[in-house]
Design a protein around this nucleic acid. Structure first.
Lengths: 160, 160
DNA sequence: CATATAATGTTTAAGCTTGAAGGAAATTTC
DNA sequence: GAAATTTCCTTCAAGCTTAAACATTATATG
């Protein structure tokens, strides 16, 4: 019997694959619970959405603008997806497309001043919402979870 | 200066709210990475989707069927959402609606034999996919994360 | 240079999601 | 028992998401 064999404690200990499945369901539950809250508050308090917030967040970090493909790469979503979101941000005067000199295929997307102001306000609220949701976690709790999530994310990235 | 004051180590230690925000972003990253993988494999290998899988999973645990409102309650999604998903499952012969004796408003949704077979196969694959994604986590890693997520989920539930 | 190949974005069809509006049936209240 | 309320579900409009198909422009290859 090999050391890896699960049958050593068959019927006694839960198989590792089941434990991992339970872990995933708990991770998903926490994630969805927090995310739903953020979506709801963005809608109710800012008539906005999480995808819009995510795009604006990316743009806010790049004052020189981002190409569509850069946004979709950062957010790990499809190109067509970003097209629609930027369209709506532009309609509302929060972002705009500017031509890229030397490449007539691409365009740079930037936040307008109005978009910068709106995002700054939402980002502050967003941080409060998260901290409020997690307010029962003290510094040690947070550090402990971050350490484990860093390890998990490292192993997940190897698989991409 | 109170013991709770953050200004004791202003400029030295990251504020707790920022740490919590970082924790959230890492949690979200892990969750999205795994979820995207599941969605992709459900689509490619079973021409299905995660919402369909979730509904079938709920139905598989209730051989006597579930009312629409029970499904939306379990999955924490809207009623209208479940209507569409069950419609599509029914079109494909995987689920069906049966009348509830004594309540002509409601209907019970059940998996068909075809739906049961299809779900059983997908559930096995699903567990493998998850375990494979998390295969770098040993039993101690998994237990440690589960313990922390249980605590987090407990505190989140208090806020609902 | 001409042609083939790559890269950049948009459009489209299909499905998911929500909140709001609405229909139908059950329950409560008077 | 009639009227008001609540419950159950569906429909709808708007937005998000993807993959595939497409147009346009840029680059590489001969």
């Amino acid at each position: 019997m090999t050391p890896q064999s699960q049958s050593v404690d068959a019927g006694v200990t839960e198989p590792l694959s089941k434990m991992r499945l339970r872990l995933w369901l708990k991770l998903l539950k926490a994630s969805n619970q927090i995310e739903d809250q953020i979506r709801r508050r963005l809608r109710e308090e800012y008539q906005s959405t999480l995808p819009r917030f995510d795009v604006m967040s990316a743009l806010a970090r790049s004052p020189d603008g981002l190409k569509m493909s850069q946004i979709s790469g950062l957010l790990r979503v499809s190109n067509g997806n970003v097209t629609g979101i930027v369209d709506r941000l532009a309609e509302e005067g929060l972002a705009l497309r500017v031509a890229v000199p030397g490449d007539r295929r691409a365009s740079l997307v930037r936040l307008t001043p109005k978009g910068e102001t709106a995002f700054a306000e939402q980002a502050v609220a967003h941080e409060h919402w998260i901290s409020d949701r997690l307010d029962r976690l003290d510094a040690d709790d947070v550090e402990g979870m971050i350490r484990r999530l860093d390890y998990l994310n490292d192993t997940l990235e190897e698989k991409d």
